[in-house]
């Protein structure tokens, strides 16, 4: 009898596999980023590109764009695995479902949200964000985008078996994103006005840990329903 796979090994195996697959499908990484840039460009063009107008809406626009591009890329999280049957294999593996779900979410975050965070300063510059807001923007994205991935994964898991899951997914998930959006934009705004924003960050961090602990179980339950 083989010793059962340790949780860490299982996590690493799945993480490595998902990263490898993502890197061989570079379009999937690049397209959400392009979408992110284009949405921000559209905002700048539509409101008239006046520097002070841009400055006031910058935190909100950057965050909404980040949120939408995350949503766009989320569908890929379980869809391919569901279609080619590897999701069943994962669910039937001896390791608990929440481990594999967490590994997949982490892999997804690394290939979609991390590049987005690195790109954000550039777009903040285009949106004429106040220089004091950069650090806050970076920190809120760093803490906030994992929440988006975790909550989004629940929606993806619920809709993965449906043929037309796309629009439904946004209907399910976007309302749940509102608290993160509120806190993150408020933090960036506070930073640009030179007032303290550590409190906002602390609440975002609390939400992050809460969703880190609970979301994988909800995703596991949802996946079991979807493969039923």
């Amino acid at each position: 009898m083989n010793p059962a796979l340790s949780y860490r090994q299982a996590f690493n195996t799945i993480l490595k596999r998902d990263l490898k697959i993502a890197l061989r499908h570079r379009d999937d990484i690049v397209n959400p980023l392009l979408f992110f840039i284009i949405v921000i460009t559209l905002f700048a063009i539509s409101v008239g590109a006046m520097p002070n107008v841009l400055m006031t809406i910058a935190p909100g626009v950057i965050w909404v764009a980040a949120l939408l591009s995350t949503l766009l890329s989320l569908e890929r999280l379980f869809k391919n695995d569901y279609q080619d049957g590897s999701l069943e294999q994962l669910l039937l593996s001896p390791c608990p479902v929440f481990i594999l779900v967490l590994a997949k979410i982490v892999a997804h975050w690394l290939v979609t949200s991390l590049p987005l965070i690195l790109l954000a300063p550039l777009l903040a510059m285009m949106m004429n964000l106040h220089p004091d807001g950069y650090l806050a923007l970076f920190l809120t994205l760093l803490l906030g985008t994992p929440i988006l991935s975790l909550l989004g994964a629940i929606g993806v898991a619920l809709t993965v078996a449906l043929k037309k899951g796309g629009v439904l997914l946004s209907l399910l998930i976007l309302p749940l994103y509102i608290p993160v959006l509120i806190l993150a934009t408020a933090a960036v705004e506070a930073a640009t006005m030179n007032s303290p924003y550590q409190g906002h960050l602390a609440i975002i961090a609390a939400l992050f840990f809460a969703s880190l602990i609970t979301a994988p179980f909800a995703v596991g339950a949802a996946l079991k329903v979807s493969t039923n």
Binding site: L5, R17, N80, D84, S86
Partner: peptide, 19 residues
């Protein structure tokens, strides 16, 4: 079977998952 992976990678992953 993941079409993005090679035959060997697919097999290895399947085996690793069952330790």
């Amino acid at each position: 079977v993941k079409s993005e992976l090679t035959v060997l990678e697919n097999l290895k992953f399947n085996l690793q998952l069952c330790s």
